[in-house]
Design a protein around this nucleic acid. Sequence first.
DNA 1: TCATATCGCTGACCTTAGTCAGGGATTCGG
DNA 2: CCGAATCCCTGACTAAGGTCAGCGATATGA
Lengths: 298, 298
Amino acid sequence: MSAPIDAEAVASVRAFNRAVTTRIGALRDHHLGGGRSLGASRVLWEVDGDGVDVRDIRERLELDSGYLSRLLRSLEREGLVTVAGSPADPRVRSVRPTDAGRGERAELDRRSDELAASLLAPLSDGQRLRLIDAMDTVMRLLDAGLVEVESADAASDDARRCLAAYYDELARRFPDGFDPGQSLHPDTHEFTEPTGLFVLARLHDRAIGCGAVLFQEDGRAYLKRMWVDESMRGTGVGRRILDALEQAAREHGAASAVLETNETLTQAIAMYRASGYVEVEPFNDEFYADLWFAKPLA
Amino acid sequence: MSAPIDAEAVASVRAFNRAVTTRIGALRDHHLGGGRSLGASRVLWEVDGDGVDVRDIRERLELDSGYLSRLLRSLEREGLVTVAGSPADPRVRSVRPTDAGRGERAELDRRSDELAASLLAPLSDGQRLRLIDAMDTVMRLLDAGLVEVESADAASDDARRCLAAYYDELARRFPDGFDPGQSLHPDTHEFTEPTGLFVLARLHDRAIGCGAVLFQEDGRAYLKRMWVDESMRGTGVGRRILDALEQAAREHGAASAVLETNETLTQAIAMYRASGYVEVEPFNDEFYADLWFAKPLA
DNA sequence: TCATATCGCTGACCTTAGTCAGGGATTCGG
DNA sequence: CCGAATCCCTGACTAAGGTCAGCGATATGA
């Protein structure tokens, strides 16, 4: 997967880091903030609408309890927030913005927009589109490097969310919709050891993809429920899920992997073919399948 | 040129800023430095080979005189640099790295490479190429917004450098080479008010493009010597130089702009056509021209 | 030669960012 | 109801980053 890294590529990345941190970083720190310290601004930013628990802020910004406490005091002194014990548990304290605090947040927002706009302003329409497209690619690929694929409980909340998103997407993409009840193996409890496996792809602790495999007694590993969040497609997450499932199948002594799919899922089909899957005769009567694939496992 | 800015575009840029400053910035600050403070590392980085004047470091890093002095003392205490009065003017002090200092710089370099490599490491070869390409696009377009086009003395050093680069490129691209002496108007003094104008495009005070115009008595403005540095092509700099020359021509009452070019300069020709230039009969006997263009000025 | 400017240094001072050890109030589990 | 845990706060402390006024040494221009 990862060949040795070209020195020229490293130099390009370094140039990018330098350019971006000076250009954007310098702007951000001095443009934003506006008199307030960066720490206080960051905290103010987290305090929205209906009140936020102090511990949530602490966790999100990874701040020391004492440090955060002091930042809150300074925001209180400025009249931007109020801190009060939560009604449910008075140990937990809840921070709410005052009207002035809401105004300051809006101002922060405005300045952030202004900064972004100042980068776009000198460009033509075509250049703006190209810039945004390239920024999107950079973000997605930087994220791609942080995705972790690992086995998980198919009944967990994260897994459920992924499967729901998967079914939802099938319902949207299939011409006649999708009903999980009509599909084979609709029950998730089969995807656990030793009969099967369920894997989740995570990015920043958010589940953004899943896949399952059933180790059949005939020596074939039956792959199901492969899905990747729209925002992360094209970054190799699907491939990594596939690899993880195949690896597990190998370890369980499976001689081949099989799967079926629907012809509307063109990206998935392309990935299967690129991974060495070849079309075979239908091996089951999955209601939603048009194509059946198999691949020998080394 | 710059239409009102789409709110969605602004949101994309903001997302990029956030993603990049957290992902790269966080890595940089804690990865780099390595025990030393960031400030001291930055200074050490500026101290190369043959000694650097303190005031140059101060200017490049925009540091306070007192602050820099203290950072230098701490580097001296660590045995990484020596500071001595410059022989020419003992008020000016010059900083040189010791052997240990050179070693530390190499170490800094290594860590910087490592950081860049760590972003590339988890990616496949294809993804790496895409990432680097997108990073390059982002850098170039961010830079494009900072380019300034302004009139300049055609005899200045910057102008000379641009023209030299221009001739050099023509010599490389034309099948039979290029000799400025054989070309019309090889003398630069004509490109000054009131008979003409010379403009330079600058990025971070570096000249990266030029263009000239001659206001002819027949009411035509004759454009010459348009060039943009290779690294900035495709970012609209050429178009801006063209606009500046045309605008000056209009202000001098010119009814049309004319220019000739060589068919090997395909990018330039495409830009002329896109700007409203149409091919006309040869209006001079420029030795190196294959194509003659004209455009009415509003 | 003398006033003026330049250059870097030092001392004094400030804010920001962050860490750590308690401590009071409260909840929770048994 | 007791002990343990939780939550936030305060006080004490440190390092980094940065600003400012003034000083001594030197150069430069009139």
